[in-house]
């Protein structure tokens, strides 16, 4: 039981990191440009498809990973210039709709190019299998790598925002758009760079998570909604909020699915308890989000509404 509990806690942590990879780009784009990007999930899907296709063609997972990074960043830059740029001045409604339209274009476009069947993508040999900890706990190496990558991305983003020239501009852009343009910074180039960066983060997340999951059309949508839940809980625009929010959601979801059916079995017939428990578990994170927002409308680390 203790081993199981530790493993579930690791799972919650790992799931949270997976969500963070997705949420980081989303919250960055929102924080800097004030843009709601529903197509973030499509960039995630694109990353997974490109990684699978390139890895399948060349036989190298690593080449696939690099390709997915380049492809998603490039796709991000292209849609920023072609579409997103026209949306900054619009209200959230137009942003939601335009990016909803982009989802349709990307999903069916992907199916057109790559076919309807799921693609194959697997863990590279060096990272496959499970490691055994002292005490007998076994845990898949690749999931540990995802936890590590998540931490590295979080560290990288903190450094980028806090310690580089680009970060200074990003923060300035968040604070006052007019001022930064007046200071002679090319704001539209900055926006393209930030959007491409967000897209690259989505692409990498897609490639890594796609390695563990089914690479198929529509894979970005459930995770997109979860990523929104994460950044809303954490406070939109805050990297720290996204990190804490992701861990909270990951932990709540994993533990809910694990503990609720067991809990209900104490008070009712086990077969019914499993149904009720997992029904409740599936709405738990939305409940968490509602509670957080009702108590703290700007999210845990949100500065403005």
């Amino acid at each position: 039981m203790t081993l199981l509990l530790i493993e579930q806690i690791l799972n919650g942590l790992q799931y949270g990191m997976m969500l963070f990879l997705m949420a980081a780009g989303l919250t960055l784009v929102f924080g800097v440009m004030g843009l709601i990007n529903l197509a973030h999930g499509s960039l995630y899907m694109l990353g997974a498809f490109v990684c699978a296709a390139v890895a399948g063609f060349t036989g190298s997972f690593w080449l696939g990973l690099v390709a997915s990074l380049i492809a998603s960043a490039a796709a991000g830059a292209v849609i920023e210039v072609a579409v997103i740029r026209r949306l900054y001045a619009r209200d959230h409604l137009d942003q939601v709709l335009a990016t909803f339209a982009l989802i349709l274009v990307f999903s069916e476009g992907c199916r057109w190019v790559f076919g309807s069947s799921p693609l194959f993508l697997t863990v590279p040999a060096v990272l496959s299998g499970a490691v055994t900890f002292p005490g007998g706990l076994q845990y898949p190496l690749f999931r540990l790598v995802i936890i590590f990558v998540g931490l590295a991305v979080a560290g990288g983003l903190f450094w980028l925002i806090g310690g580089t020239r680009l970060g200074v501009r990003i923060r300035a852009g968040e604070a006052d758009r007019g001022m930064i343009a007046a200071l002679g910074v090319d704001i539209s180039r900055l926006y393209t760079i930030v959007f491409a960066l967000g897209a690259a983060l989505a692409g990498i997340a897609g490639a890594l998570v796609g390695t563990l999951q089914s690479v198929q059309v529509g894979m970005g949508e459930p995770v997109l909604i979860l990523a929104f839940v994460v950044i809303v809980i954490g406070g939109i625009g805050s990297i720290k909020g996204a990190l804490i929010g992701a861990l909270l959601v990951g932990m709540t979801d994993t533990m809910g699915r694990f503990l609720l059916p067991m809990g209900f079995a104490q008070i009712m017939d086990p077969a019914a308890a499993r149904g009720v428990g997992s029904a409740l578990a599936s709405i738990l994170i939305y409940l968490l989000m509602a509670v957080v927002l009702v108590v703290r409308p700007q999210g845990l680390f949100g500065a403005r509404t």
């Binding site: 579930q8 799972n11 790992q14 799931y15 997976m18 999931r143 998570v209 563990l212 999951q213 089914s214 894979m219 459930p222 995770v223 994993t254 699915r257 694990f258 059916p261 499993r274 149904g275 997992s278 578990a281 599936s282």
Partner: peptide, 11 residues
């Protein structure tokens, strides 16, 4: 019982 459309089965 897992969630419909669930993608992660670590738990």
């Amino acid at each position: 019982y897992t969630q419909v459309g669930q993608t992660d089965y670590a738990g």
